[in-house]
Design a protein around this nucleic acid. Structure first.
Length: 444
DNA sequence: TGAAATGTTGGGGCG
DNA sequence: ACGCCCCAACATTTC
């Protein structure tokens, strides 16, 4: 093998295990340069504040992992993708660019441009961020994509041979070059000034690859068997808490799927279906690129919102006077996540009790969730509103009191998150709002 | 992966 | 013993 060099472009796949682009680059090229280019416009939508903080620490951890394992540094750049690559190629001898391809339109377009503009190089892209590429799963009869989850999931389970085996991590990486790197700090992903919010957020999460893996194994061994029931009880440690790691690719969905399939047959396992909901969100987004701004069902576009700025702020701050809602919004603010069951309750409350546009809720979640995902966040909000495919029917309106009674009867969750000076002063009357909302849905 | 409104049933109190 | 009312408990329908 001659001394040839490949760039490996990283993006939402910050891992060495089951990273096909890295794996193949190391196999095919003697010299490999791991590169991360940060660019807000490349992302299509600028990251939210919480995601930026999470990304910052992910990059630091990934860089130190590369250093520890391979004595190789992550090259960090800031700028327009193609310009940065051109600049590097101009100054260094580069023979190949490998990356794991993306599933959002802006990223795909940029990646296609890379393939065009540098076709004199060996450009290869791989599937790594999803179990199935959105275009791999096709309905056998009619339409080019699935609109209902159940048949989609069945087709996925019939197609598990498309998932394939995981790739092992490279034995060693050689990375000779003189390309300058920014420090991660220079990307300015952290808030300008120190704040309690930011400290709490960081302290709530580990960025150690070993710990992330150990925690997931612990979940599989001890908690997977009760997952189906326990995941609905917010006071229980019932869910896996891997969402931000899947979001930024510190964990591979394929490894998760394969481990779980070894543990319990995938057909009888609720967690598998949760992984497939993630796939479904990407599948739907791929064929509906404006999912973040446009209702998927046309008739929902003219829903009449109140959009009270005051009520929106009270919801954001956890001052609605409804304990389960306010506890959830506080958990979100303090940790960067909210328990899944409570997300549904809080989202339903914003839309169906406060009559505030789902997009405003989606934007708040986008800004404050560390697992905010361009497909899943938008998909889920449309699900609650009823405007999404296979969404909740419009008349399914959560009653925050009965939800609390059902899923947090002892109030452990509420007690944990509600501040000491929290007051049960309700900003709306649920019964009244419910009737108003039903009336407006009927007018569609 | 709801909840409210409405309908039905059956046991107990009581004239 | 019987019919009637009440109402809780459950079932079904509706939004």
């Amino acid at each position: 093998m001659t001394n040839k060099t490949a760039i490996v472009l990283f993006s939402d796949d910050f891992r060495i295990k089951d990273n096909p682009a890295l794996h193949h680059a190391v196999k095919n090229y003697e010299n490999v340069i791991p590169l991360y280019i940060y660019n807000e416009s490349y992302l299509g939508r600028p990251l939210g504040s919480a995601s930026k903080v999470f990304l910052h620490h992910t990059l630091l951890s990934f860089d130190s992992l590369l250093t520890r394992e391979y004595n190789v540094r992550l090259i960090v750049k800031n700028g327009y993708y193609l310009d940065v690559i051109k600049e590097i190629i101009y100054h260094s001898q580069i023979d190949a660019i490998y990356f794991n391809h993306s599933c959002t339109l802006d990223q795909i377009q940029t990646e296609n441009k890379i393939k065009q503009d540098f076709k004199h190089l060996d450009i290869q892209s791989f599937k790594a961020k999803l179990l199935f590429d959105p275009w791999e799963i096709k309905p056998s009869s009619g339409g080019n994509f699935y609109k209902v989850f159940t048949p989609f999931s069945k087709e996925c389970l019939r197609s598990i041979n498309l998932i394939g085996d995981s790739y092992s991590k490279p034995e060693k990486i050689k990375s000779l070059h003189n390309i300058e790197s920014l420090k991660v700090e220079e990307l300015n992903l952290l808030p300008k000034q120190e704040s309690q919010w930011f400290k709490d957020l960081v302290n709530n999460w580990t960025f150690s690859y070993n710990e992330i893996e150990e925690n997931f194994i612990e979940f599989i061994e001890n908690r997977l068997k009760n997952y189906k029931d326990d995941r609905n009880i917010p006071s229980k440690n019932g869910n896996s808490r891997i969402s931000p790691y899947l979001r930024f690719g510190m964990l591979s969905p394929r490894i998760c799927f394969n481990i779980i399939t070894l543990s319990i047959p995938y057909t009888t396992n609720q967690f598998t279906f949760e992984l497939l909901w993630r796939e479904f969100a990407y599948h739907v987004m791929f064929y509906n690129q404006n999912i973040a701004t446009k209702e998927l069902k046309n008739e929902y576009k003219c829903f009449k919102w109140d959009n009270s700025q005051d009520l929106l702020q009270k919801w954001q701050k956890g001052q609605t006077g409804f304990d389960i809602v306010d506890a959830g919004m506080t958990e979100l603010w303090r940790t960067g996540v909210m328990h899944g069951r409570v997300r549904m309750i809080a989202a339903s409350f914003l839309i169906k009790d406060l009559l505030i546009n789902w997009q405003l809720g989606e934007q708040w979640f986008w800004d404050t969730l560390v697992d905010a995902d361009p497909a899943i966040n938008t998909f889920s909000w449309q699900w609650v509103f009823g405007s999404g495919f296979d969404a909740a029917p419009y008349f399914r309106i959560f009653n925050p009191d009965s939800q609390k009674e059902k899923f947090d009867p002892n109030g452990y969750y509420c007690k944990k998150w509600l501040p000491k000076d929290w007051r049960p002063e309700r900003i709306v009357v649920h019964d009244v709002q419910r009737k108003v909302t039903l009336e407006r849905y009927k007018n569609l």
